[in-house]
């Protein structure tokens, strides 16, 4: 289940990770991450701040992108960098597709590296958390 550097080419898409969080998962995440801001689990609170619904934590989408990379590279590679910005809100019980494309393949300081463009995508096809990552591969 490990990806090797030799098998990677620039422009290739990595396998999509499909997510769809229910409110229970958001509560799990709140406890695991320590982010207890109520807009992520208290509907009345979220509405009172002007939101139409509870929203998915940005950092959870960042963590989904981390899983996207881990599931692709396996345990012989490692994540060097993973980052994204939170451009759009995602809501519970909606599909979140986590995707990535290899943008660069190179060697640096004796390490075999790959840069990727990564993002989460909502049901309307909008990239709600676009970002970039670097992984090291065997």
């Amino acid at each position: 289940m490990s990806t090797t550097w030799d098998a990677v080419s620039e422009g290739m898409e990595i396998p999509t990770l499909a997510k769809n969080c229910n409110t229970q998962q958001l509560v799990h995440w709140a406890a695991a991450s320590g982010d207890f801001y109520q807009i992520h689990y208290d509907h009345n609170f979220a509405k009172a701040t002007g939101l139409e619904n509870i929203i998915v934590h940005g950092a959870l989408k960042h963590a989904f992108l981390g899983q996207l990379l881990h599931d692709w590279i396996g345990n012989e590679g490692s994540i060097k960098k993973v980052g994204c910005s939170y451009r759009g809100m995602d809501f519970p019980d909606q599909d979140i597709q986590c995707k990535g494309i290899v943008t660069r393949k190179y060697e640096e300081n004796g390490e075999k590296l790959v840069d990727l463009e990564i993002w989460t995508e909502n049901p309307q096809g909008q990239r709600t958390s676009p970002g970039v990552a670097t992984v090291q591969l065997p």
Partner: peptide, 16 residues
């Protein structure tokens, strides 16, 4: 300013 949002997160890992 009453409200806040998380704008983004970038993590660089330099060790296990």
């Amino acid at each position: 300013l009453k409200r806040m949002l998380n704008g983004g997160t970038d993590v660089e890992y330099t060790g296990q």
